[in-house]
């Protein structure tokens, strides 16, 4: 098992090298001159040249790349020019916020979408099937910032049920000590239920917003793959053997139908992790997406490079997990290096 994992991770190395090269080059061709941006609007050409030298931008591209790679090997992703702090610490602080939100959103959407998809397939053409279709279409057609704003308007402004959408915790609570970086889990570890409740009420709305959006692909894939499996010949065998419909649906059909669902899940997860910038903006969530966008706007390339690299590594890890899950479920799949 460990050997398979090792082999699988090893095959990701070439793509990671590719990601490093491409992000490096891409950030160098971004519009806008970083040096003149940071020297300020009133700077003299001399001052700009000074800044450029300071940033190392006056050296040739291969030289810059070499020093970038050397630093990378030391675990140094450079410093953000806007905040002045190391990119590694910023990402380490912000990634858990994004991950907690995305995972929770995905979990919620799974809890709703998978049963919905199963029922829609089993009772094809019933009102549940139609509901599933409407919910899925609506969820995917409403942009997340819109649903997010509606939720804030209704639940915070009108009803006052939820706290102000201002980040992971309100001002009255201090973050729990960091174990995992996930506030909900950390608060539970130290048995600080007050903080847990506060963190939960903060994360509830953005989670629901994300869940509504990711509901559609998961529900649709579940329904489609359940329908395909339910028409399979071994389901007929199971029926002819008199098995209970719950056994047929869960043990026989659903386990087989899960494979495409898992694939979709991986895609939705990696997609959400980077793309939930809008949700992070609406709820002032200190996540990695908004960090990258701000850096991009400021032509601050170190954070952008760090962000892309982090995403690439996450993507590799997620796909590894999916492949392992696949081989756990389907004996026909052998995880190949």
């Amino acid at each position: 098992m460990l050997r398979t994992i090792g082999r699988r991770v090893a095959t990701a190395i070439p793509s990671l090298i590719g990601v490093i090269i491409v992000t490096f080059l891409l950030t160098r061709v971004l519009p806008g001159d970083t040096a003149s941006f940071f020297a300020g609007p009133a700077a003299t050409p001399q001052a700009i040249a000074e800044v450029r030298k300071q940033l190392g931008l006056d050296r040739s591209l291969p030289e810059q790349f070499a020093s970038y790679v050397v630093n990378l090997a030391k675990g140094d992703l450079g410093n953000s020019l806007t905040t002045g702090r190391p990119v590694v610490t910023e990402i380490a602080a912000r990634l858990p916020a994004s991950a907690e939100l995305t995972l929770l959103g995905l979990l919620l959407s799974l809890i709703i979408a998978v049963p919905l998809g199963i029922v829609a397939a089993v009772r094809q053409g019933s009102w549940i099937d139609h509901t599933c279709r409407i919910v899925a279409t609506a969820g995917v057609s409403l942009p997340v910032f819109f649903t997010g704003l509606i939720f804030v308007y209704v639940f915070y402004f009108l009803l006052g049920w939820s706290p102000a959408p201002l980040g992971r915790l309100d001002v009255f609570n201090s973050p729990p000590p960091t174990y995992t970086g996930f506030y909900l889990i950390d608060a539970l570890i130290v048995r600080d239920f007050e903080t847990f409740r506060a963190a939960l009420s903060q994360i509830a709305l953005p989670t629901i917003t994300l869940a509504v959006f990711s509901l559609a692909p998961i529900a649709r894939i579940t329904r489609a793959s359940m329908l395909a499996i339910l028409a399979a010949e071994f389901i007929r065998t199971a029926r002819a053997s008199g098995l209970k419909s719950s056994t047929i649906i869960m043990t026989y059909a659903f386990r087989n139908a899960m494979l495409p669902v898992i694939t979709t899940l991986g895609m939705v997860f990696s997609f959400l992790l980077g793309a939930n910038v809008l949700v992070e903006k609406v709820f002032a969530w200190p996540g990695i997406g908004s960090y990258a966008v701000e850096a991009l706007i400021a032509s601050d390339f170190a954070p952008v490079q760090g962000f892309v690299l982090t995403m690439a590594i996450l993507y590799v890890l997620i796909n590894l997990c999916i492949d392992l899950l696949y081989s756990a479920i389907d004996p026909r799949v052998k995880v190949e290096g």
Binding site: F234, T251, Y252, D330, P331
Partner: peptide, 8 residues
């Protein structure tokens, strides 16, 4: 072969 559950 198709009449048997492939992953059980």
């Amino acid at each position: 072969r198709a009449a048997l559950n492939p992953i059980r």
